[in-house]
Amino acid sequence: MHAKQRRVVRVVTLVVALFAIVLGVLPYGLPEIFISEDQRASLANFFGQESLHSPVNPERASQPSTHTNNWAVLLCTSKFWFNYRHMANTLGMYRTVKRLGVPDSHIILMLAEDAACNARNPFPGSVWPSMNKDLDLYGDDVQVDYRGYEVTVPNFLRLLTGRVPAHIPRSKRLNTDERSNIFLYMTGHGGNGFLKFQDSEEVSAMDLGKTRS
């Protein structure tokens, strides 16, 4: 490669790197470019904050929040090692909601597969979001509430409706009230209007809709 070609390659690489950095920083420095004022107001209200990085409508911000607490239900319905990504996605969301201030006592974590302890895992006790292995999503501070064959459609629906058996401990219940916010994250295999549970059963959009009644 000639010296001129090498210079061109270096310049192009530098431009691409700067562009990537700008795209990575802008959402934090100027969130209004990426989300609307209404969306910012909704997020701020959900988490009981007055603003997210930049101020929202003063009239809305002055209105007191009506919700009492935040909860999260994080569900991975996939079993088997080849669905590693689904567990990693759920654990990534688990760490995200904890970072946003939701304590473990208000998080229900449901994992159909324990990839960290799978015999095929070359890094026992760890789950990584990428090949770079820059963040162990499992670590030593993950509290799994439902695991393996506990992750079923009946258990999931009972959790959402509060109709769990009397012997179920408080740590496996949604101890919410009428003003609680519940963030629901589900990942796995499915299709239009349904999500599979461990390749043996499925929950439908209609089933989920009924939990709100």
Results as ranks from 00 to 15, higher is better:
153 V>C: 05
122 P>K: 04
144 V>Q: 14
105 S>K: 11
120 R>M: 10
124 P>Y: 02
85 R>F: 07
172 K>L: 03
83 N>L: 02
64 P>W: 08
127 V>W: 05
143 Q>I: 01
170 R>S: 14
93 M>A: 14
159 L>H: 00
167 H>N: 13
115 A>F: 04
63 Q>E: 05
79 K>A: 05
111 L>D: 03
102 V>W: 07
157 L>E: 10
161 T>Q: 06
139 G>K: 08
85 R>L: 07
71 W>C: 06
88 A>F: 13
140 D>H: 11
159 L>R: 00
146 Y>M: 00
72 A>C: 09
85 R>P: 00
139 G>S: 10
97 V>G: 11
62 S>R: 02
115 A>V: 14
171 S>C: 10
149 Y>E: 14
121 N>V: 08
67 H>W: 07
102 V>D: 08
104 D>F: 01
155 N>D: 15
124 P>C: 07
141 D>A: 15
82 F>Q: 08
91 L>Q: 11
118 N>R: 04
133 K>M: 11
77 T>K: 00
101 G>S: 09
110 M>T: 13
70 N>T: 06
89 N>Q: 11
153 V>Q: 14
130 S>T: 14
85 R>W: 05
137 L>T: 13
171 S>E: 14
134 D>R: 05
140 D>P: 01
90 T>Y: 00
123 F>H: 15
152 T>V: 05
112 A>W: 14
99 R>D: 11
143 Q>F: 09
166 A>S: 09
147 R>G: 15
61 A>S: 12
126 S>I: 08
80 F>K: 09
152 T>F: 03
167 H>L: 03
170 R>L: 10
116 A>Q: 15
160 L>Y: 10
110 M>Q: 10
147 R>A: 15
160 L>F: 12
113 E>I: 11
143 Q>P: 00
153 V>Y: 04
62 S>M: 01
161 T>W: 04
122 P>M: 08
71 W>S: 09
153 V>S: 10
95 R>W: 06
156 F>K: 06
86 H>S: 03
155 N>R: 15
153 V>L: 05
64 P>D: 04
62 S>W: 00
92 G>N: 13
145 D>F: 12
85 R>S: 10
170 R>T: 01
92 G>Q: 14
139 G>I: 07
165 P>E: 15
142 V>N: 11
167 H>I: 02
115 A>D: 01
133 K>S: 02
102 V>P: 06
113 E>R: 04
77 T>V: 07
71 W>N: 04
107 I>Y: 06
108 I>H: 10
72 A>Y: 02
89 N>C: 09
70 N>P: 00
76 C>L: 01
69 N>M: 07
92 G>M: 13
78 S>L: 01
71 W>K: 00
76 C>Y: 00
104 D>T: 10
71 W>T: 10
77 T>S: 01
161 T>L: 11
91 L>R: 07
96 T>L: 03
169 P>N: 06
115 A>W: 02
80 F>V: 05
98 K>M: 05
154 P>S: 11
170 R>E: 14
164 V>A: 12
89 N>I: 08
114 D>G: 15
153 V>M: 10
144 V>E: 13
129 P>R: 06
78 S>F: 06
99 R>V: 03
141 D>P: 12
60 R>V: 08
143 Q>H: 14
145 D>K: 15
123 F>T: 15
72 A>D: 00
61 A>R: 14
89 N>A: 13
91 L>M: 11
168 I>C: 05
169 P>V: 00
160 L>T: 09
168 I>L: 04
81 W>C: 05
93 M>W: 00
